[in-house]
Amino acid sequence: MNLKFEIIGDDFSQAGQASSQVKKVLKQLNIAPHLVRKIAVAMYEAEVNIVAHAYRGTMHVEIDSSKVYLRFEDEGPGISDIDLAMQQGYSTASEAVRQMGFGAGMGLPNIKKNSDELKIASEVGKGTTVEITTYLK
């Protein structure tokens, strides 16, 4: 099964809608609850990252019997130092994002914790691609 969602940058009223829809699909597919929760947390962190940092982006979802693969592609400022961004506590989030309860430099480390494979590729001034794979078996 393949799904695709558009994510709008800076629009916190819609942030999480795509993740919510995918989570419901995962539940309907009878994927184990602990895996649904793990995927949902990683997916939502990545979606919020696009809303918080990028101008716009997409989330592609591929589900088969062995894995759930998520690919987030955004147009945005990009990440100049991915190793630094992966460090807990490092954040470039705005004050508005922090007031929403995010931007504490916990998102990327938490995505790593809640995924089996995480790949991040970024080009400064263009955008970032985040790939998250979770194995179901």
Binding site: G16, S19, G101
Partner: peptide, 15 residues
């Protein structure tokens, strides 16, 4: 103390 929609979305993801 946060009463915006992201509180609900976060709660939803965390069950």
């Amino acid at each position: 103390g946060l009463n915006h929609l992201q509180t609900l979305r976060t709660a939803e993801m965390a069950e």
